[in-house]
Amino acid sequence: MIHRALNIESNDNSLFVTAQCNNKCVMCCQPPTQCDDIEKYFIQNIELIKSAPKGLKNIGITGGEPTLLGDKLFEYIRIIREYLPDTSIHILSNGRIFKDADYTHKLKDAGGEKLFVGVPLHSDFINDHNHIAGAESAYEETITGLYNLASEEICIELRIVINALNYSRLPQMAKFIFKNLTFVSWVALMGMEHIGYAIKNQSTIWIEPEQYSTQLSDATLYLSQVGIPVSIYNVPLCLLDKRIHKYACQSISDWKTLYLDECDKCSVRSDCCGLFATSHRIFKGIKAL
């Protein structure tokens, strides 16, 4: 992981806190390692926090799985709160640890307001979710964790990375979310990055946005119609049905955004997220609009 100074102009300021994870997602862009790296990153990250610009809007905590830090995660949060009292903290977690209500409560205590937790849901169907997450009890633990986060009134971003194993149930997932996870603050439907495990598993999981266009539109429009805020990340506008353009975000970190030559001719380039420069494969069908 490259460490960059926290930059007030950037849309992506994240602290990488460990490469370890208790899931092994089939499309993981940051494959986990076993090595004990928590202290090493802690020392580096504390320096980053202390030297960060005070007006920083948003700071991410990512990995790996940040909750594997246990109570040390709260130390991070307390230090961020001390040096950057007005900065939102956005934790990316698989959510499993939050099945422990006490741990979830401690997170709320440390983070207070301006705390967001982004949690992935891979499928409404238990076995598909567990298969994609690469862990047996991931589904129940994540769902219970989401309920515990909600009961602490912590903002939840529910993240769905679209892959070949889950795209066909996107509309059903949207319904599942409205019926069973009504409390989430917003849902992010995300295109996949072709890196990490996504390369290794490409024959079973890779899918082109063109192939899931219908399902993505149905799910997006449904969520919007039932009043759940929804955003689309990482899929360029030219690959989305016009009806859902307004839900697409500039989601790709500025330092890894790529536009093709074709994009120079595009009239909506400035609204488009572009492509992952880090992706080893470029989405098919990119064309100027």
Partner: peptide, 10 residues
């Protein structure tokens, strides 16, 4: 099949 998944998820 897909219906099976739907019945479980619902």
């Amino acid at each position: 099949n897909d219906l099976y998944k739907t019945l479980v998820a619902n």
